[in-house]
Simulated scan of single mutants.
Amino acid sequence: MIEAVDVVKAFTVRTRSGLLRRARTPLRAVDGVSFAVEPGEFVGYLGPNGAGKSTTIKMLTGILTATAGTLRVCGLDPSRRRTSLARRIGVVFGQRTTLWWDLPLRDSLTLVRRLYRVESGAHRARLAELTALLELEPFLDTPVRQLSLGQRMRGDLAAALLHDPELLVLDEPTIGLDVVSKATVRDFLARVNAERGTTILLTTHDLGDIERLCRRVMIIDRGRLAYDGGLDELRRTVPADRVLVVELASPAAPITLDGIENVRVEGPRQWLRLPRSANAAAVVAELARGHDVRDFSLREPGIEDVLAGLYRGDHEYWCSGRPVAP
């Protein structure tokens, strides 16, 4: 569905170097990225701000042209076959709407049908399906400008999927949404992927989206692909500390153990950070010898902790489990 081989996107940044002079500095926003996405996959595309995520998305959708390398989406060159590609993909940018601001949502979706030349019978059936799945019925006749953020996002998803695309590209689709709206959008995307086999590429800073939806993640950092694989493999690849939560019989002074950091004390409960090399069973046994321990739990690092370490640079670059030069 997507094939990228050594894709590069370079820009020229102009900076002031004197009263009337400007210096030109070349910048590679995407620097030799290669990956493939198979039909039916649900892939998360992650990275810190400025890493190259949005630039990659814009090249995949034909908005930008790659400086070098080979890029194919649905078998097409996105920049040369942008119109043909638009009929086969759906795109949602969380901070921008594709709907008509002053028109009711129903009329916006009718215009989308005209743009994609969807046959009227297929349109009615598809709209009815999306209306039910996204719970659009209560606000179909409401002008888009009067919709809440969550309602508008559901409308944008309906517009992106109205022509039944093979590939759905999502850029921050849950940004700013409340808990209920996020759950609705996540459930819908999981269903579309599972039942219709729609390939989905998702970029987001909400790691809850990634953990609930994606079986595979790709991480871009400073324009290069730093990781491509599963979440469990990522946790094993990038070291992150575990936290041992200990509940004592009564409040006590902070526990101190060699090589163990006490990060928090709250009444009888204390949080101890364990390095990956520490044996949790041995730590618990040592605690039990010197303290009246009522309960304890070991918390494995969340994906947030793993990515924080990756972004800070507490790692080598990794791709499919193999280190590559930064």
Rank of each mutant, 00 (worst) to 15 (best):
M1V: 09
M1F: 07
I2D: 00
E3Q: 13
S17K: 11
G18Q: 09
L19I: 15
L19V: 15
L20I: 07
R21I: 11
A23Q: 12
R24L: 14
R24H: 11
R28Q: 15
R28F: 14
V30D: 02
G32P: 03
S34H: 01
F35P: 00
A36V: 14
P39F: 09
P39A: 07
E41W: 03
V43E: 00
Y45S: 02
G47V: 07
G47F: 09
P48G: 11
N49P: 10
T56D: 00
K58G: 00
L60M: 10
L60T: 05
T61H: 03
T67F: 03
A68M: 04
G69V: 03
L71I: 01
G75K: 03
S79V: 09
L85V: 05
R87P: 06
R88Y: 09
G90K: 02
G90P: 11
T97G: 13
L99C: 04
L99T: 00
W100I: 12
W100Q: 13
D102Q: 10
L103G: 03
P104K: 10
L105T: 08
R106H: 14
S108I: 03
L109R: 01
L115V: 15
L115I: 12
E119F: 06
L127D: 00
L127N: 00
A128L: 05
L130M: 05
A132W: 06
L134K: 01
F139H: 07
F139G: 01
T142Y: 04
V144W: 00
R145F: 13
S148E: 07
G150I: 04
Q151W: 06
R152D: 05
A160S: 12
P165V: 02
L167W: 02
L167F: 05
L168V: 01
V169Y: 03
V169N: 00
T174F: 05
I175K: 02
G176Q: 12
V180A: 15
K182M: 08
R186L: 09
V192A: 06
V192L: 10
T199P: 01
T203L: 09
H205L: 03
H205P: 05
H205V: 02
H205Q: 15
D206N: 12
D206G: 05
I210A: 00
L213C: 04
C214R: 01
R215I: 08
I219T: 01
D221I: 07
A226Y: 02
G229R: 00
G230W: 02
D232L: 11
D232Q: 11
E233H: 06
R236F: 12
R236V: 07
V238K: 01
D241V: 04
D241T: 14
V246T: 05
E247K: 04
E247S: 08
S250N: 08
A252K: 06
I255C: 10
D258K: 13
D258T: 13
G259D: 06
G259Q: 05
E261L: 10
R264E: 09
V265R: 11
V265P: 01
G267M: 08
W271P: 01
L272Q: 03
P275M: 08
S277K: 07
E286I: 08
E286S: 12
A288E: 14
A288F: 11
R289I: 06
G290C: 07
D292S: 13
V293I: 11
V293G: 04
V293P: 02
D295C: 07
L298K: 07
P301T: 08
I303G: 01
D305Y: 08
R312H: 11
G313L: 12
G313Y: 09
D314V: 08
H315F: 12
G321Y: 10
V324H: 13
